[in-house]
Measured scan of single mutants.
Amino acid sequence: AITFRFEGQEKAKKFYEKLMRQNLEATIHIHGDEVHVTVH
């Protein structure tokens, strides 16, 4: 698994949606202002 870190939720959401379109499995974790997107 690879984890990407984002400042702010907007960028993270766009990235997450892009992964979903590519049929990749990903989970999102929100830590205050920092958002972690883990790709499995």
Score class of each variant (00 low, 15 high):
Glu7Ser: 12
Thr38Arg: 05
Glu34Ala: 08
Val37Gln: 00
Thr27Pro: 00
Glu25Gly: 07
Ala1Pro: 10
Phe6Pro: 04
Asn23Asp: 06
Ala12Trp: 04
Val37Pro: 00
Phe4Thr: 11
Ile2Ser: 03
Thr27Met: 06
Leu24Pro: 05
His31Met: 12
Lys14Gly: 04
Glu34Trp: 11
Gln22Trp: 14
Gln9Pro: 13
Phe6Arg: 00
Ile2Asn: 03
Thr38Tyr: 07
Val39Gln: 03
Val37Tyr: 01
Glu10Ile: 06
Lys18Cys: 15
Ala26His: 02
Thr27Gln: 06
Phe4Tyr: 14
Ile2Leu: 08
Thr38Cys: 04
Arg5Asn: 05
Ala12Gln: 01
Ile28Arg: 00
Asp33Ala: 09
Phe15His: 01
Lys13Val: 12
Gly32His: 04
Gly8Thr: 15
Arg5Pro: 11
Phe4Gly: 09
Glu7Asp: 13
Asn23Ile: 04
His36Glu: 03
Arg21Cys: 05
Val35Glu: 00
Ala26Tyr: 08
His29Val: 12
Asp33Asn: 14
Arg21Gln: 12
Gly8Met: 09
Glu10Tyr: 05
Glu10Thr: 05
Lys18Thr: 10
Val37His: 00
Phe15Arg: 00
Glu25Cys: 12
Leu19Phe: 02
Arg5Trp: 15
Leu24Phe: 12
Val39Leu: 12
Leu24Trp: 08
Ile30Ser: 05
Ile2Ala: 03
Met20Gln: 07
Asn23Trp: 08
Ile30Cys: 09
His40Val: 09
Ile28Leu: 07
Lys11Trp: 08
Met20Asn: 03
Thr3Ile: 14
Glu17Asn: 07
His40Gly: 09
Glu25Ser: 12
Glu17Asp: 10
Thr3Asn: 03
Gly8Glu: 15
Leu19Gln: 02
Met20Asp: 02
Gly8Tyr: 09
Thr38Leu: 09
Phe15Pro: 00
Phe15Glu: 01
Arg5Ala: 11
Leu19Gly: 00
Glu25Thr: 13
Glu7Gln: 12
Ala1Gly: 14
Lys14Pro: 02
His29Asn: 06
Lys13Gly: 05
Glu34Asn: 04
His36Tyr: 15
Asp33Gly: 07
Glu34Val: 13
Ala12Glu: 01
Thr38Phe: 07
Ala12Asn: 01
Glu17His: 04
Gln22Glu: 08
His31Leu: 10
Lys14Cys: 13
Asp33Lys: 10
Ile30Leu: 11
Gly32Leu: 07
Glu7Phe: 13
Gln22Thr: 06
Tyr16His: 03
Glu25Lys: 14
Glu17Met: 07
Ala26Leu: 08
Leu19Lys: 01
Ile2Lys: 07
Thr27Asp: 09
Gln9Met: 15
Gly32Ala: 08
Phe15Gly: 00
Asn23Phe: 07
Tyr16Gly: 01
Ile28Gln: 01
Gln22Val: 06
Gly32Tyr: 05
Ala26Thr: 03
Asn23Thr: 03
Glu7Val: 12
Phe15Gln: 01
Gln9Thr: 11
Lys14Leu: 12
Gln22Asn: 10
Tyr16Ala: 05
Ala26Trp: 07
Gln9Phe: 15
Arg5Asp: 08
Ala1Met: 12
Glu17Lys: 04
Asn23Arg: 06
His31Trp: 11
Glu7Pro: 07
Ala12Pro: 01
Val37Phe: 02
Val37Glu: 00
Thr38Gln: 06
Tyr16Ser: 02
Glu17Thr: 03
Ile28Trp: 06
Thr27Ala: 05
Glu17Val: 04
Ala1Asn: 13
Leu24Asp: 01
Glu10Asn: 04
Lys11Cys: 15
Tyr16Met: 10
Thr38Pro: 00
Lys14His: 08
His29Pro: 00
Ala26Ile: 12
Glu34His: 14
Ala26Asp: 01
Thr27Val: 06
Val35Gln: 01
Lys18Ala: 14
Ala1Cys: 15
His40Gln: 09
Glu7Trp: 12
Thr27Lys: 06
Glu34Pro: 01
Ile30Trp: 12
Gly8Asp: 15
Lys11Glu: 15
Glu34Gly: 05
Met20Leu: 14
Arg21Val: 07
Phe15Cys: 07
Lys13Ala: 09
Tyr16Leu: 12
Thr27Trp: 09
Glu34Tyr: 13
Ile2Cys: 15
Glu17Pro: 00
Gln9Lys: 09
Thr27Tyr: 12
Phe6Glu: 04
Ala1Val: 13
Ala26Gly: 03
